[in-house]
Amino acid sequence: MSGLIAEHLKKSYPTSSEPLEILRDVSLSLEAGQNVAIVGPSGSGKSTLLAILGSLDLPTSGILQVDGVDPLSLNEKELAAYRADQVGFVFQEHHLLPQCTVLENVLIPFLATRTANAQDVETAKSLLERVGLAERLTHRPAELSGGERQRVALARALVRDPPLLLADEPTGSLDQSTADAIAELLLELQGERQKMLVVVTHSQSLAAKMQRRCQLDLGVLEEVA
């Protein structure tokens, strides 16, 4: 079955007394081309949920499928390949490697499973052109503005053509005008390529741009108008 299906996800950590429950009962579904913002107070579990959706963390219980694949059933090697192929990540801090050029940073996701080939390089260049950085291929992150670094991160998230994009506060470290530009670009790229997009954000302006909005509070996710 295509799309994202998360059902009754729970996450808790053992303590000396009662388990600490971060996610109590979270269900979410998305189809290709759909996007959703997840908002909520600090400490509500938003980043934990995003990590589970991206298979960077495991739930205590629940069901997760992305385009018919159950990542919870995969071994470590299979999971690394799954993340590389199925999920693109965009974080508040761009996490670019300072010693690598813009083009090299975009090609990094291929290292999870293989060496980038000539077609991969052309794909990366095409994405960098799309995000307005065609003239910056050989620059390093320190030579870019904050908005430009986040544009590189967007290209990197898309370079392997994953069906699912996950963004954790993607505009949180940017000034308002740059944040608005990055938000519009993120949504344009997602729509053009018919990706599923889940954005965790404190920004009401970013959340308002999304097709759907969900509130996570006390470990429970609820859709809001």
Results as ranks from 00 to 15, higher is better:
73 S>G: 14
104 E>V: 01
120 D>S: 00
151 R>K: 14
79 L>I: 02
132 G>L: 12
93 E>P: 00
79 L>V: 02
49 L>C: 12
60 T>F: 02
112 A>V: 02
83 R>I: 07
85 D>W: 00
43 G>M: 05
41 P>K: 14
46 K>F: 04
144 L>Y: 08
135 E>V: 08
103 L>M: 05
35 N>C: 07
141 P>M: 08
60 T>A: 00
90 V>I: 15
102 V>M: 05
49 L>Y: 11
113 T>H: 00
39 V>M: 14
121 V>Q: 11
52 I>V: 08
68 G>K: 10
104 E>I: 04
140 R>N: 07
108 I>G: 08
48 T>W: 05
143 E>W: 09
120 D>R: 00
93 E>S: 13
120 D>G: 00
82 Y>E: 01
54 G>L: 09
126 S>G: 06
141 P>G: 10
105 N>T: 10
92 Q>P: 07
81 A>E: 11
67 D>A: 11
106 V>T: 04
113 T>D: 03
134 A>G: 13
80 A>F: 01
137 L>M: 05
128 L>A: 05
146 G>N: 02
55 S>W: 03
61 S>Q: 14
97 L>C: 04
142 A>W: 01
77 K>V: 15
153 A>E: 03
75 N>D: 15
99 Q>R: 15
128 L>S: 04
148 E>Q: 15
100 C>T: 06
36 V>Q: 07
40 G>V: 05
56 L>P: 03
80 A>V: 14
135 E>N: 12
153 A>G: 03
121 V>S: 02
103 L>H: 08
142 A>C: 04
36 V>D: 11
44 S>D: 10
123 T>V: 02
140 R>T: 09
69 V>Y: 06
93 E>N: 12
128 L>N: 05
122 E>T: 00
96 L>Y: 11
64 L>C: 13
82 Y>P: 06
105 N>L: 07
152 V>I: 00
87 V>N: 10
68 G>M: 07
118 A>C: 01
88 G>S: 08
49 L>F: 12
105 N>M: 08
61 S>D: 13
54 G>T: 05
75 N>Y: 12
116 A>Q: 00
93 E>G: 10
53 L>S: 11
153 A>D: 01
130 R>P: 06
125 K>N: 07
126 S>H: 05
94 H>V: 03
114 R>D: 03
94 H>W: 11
122 E>Y: 00
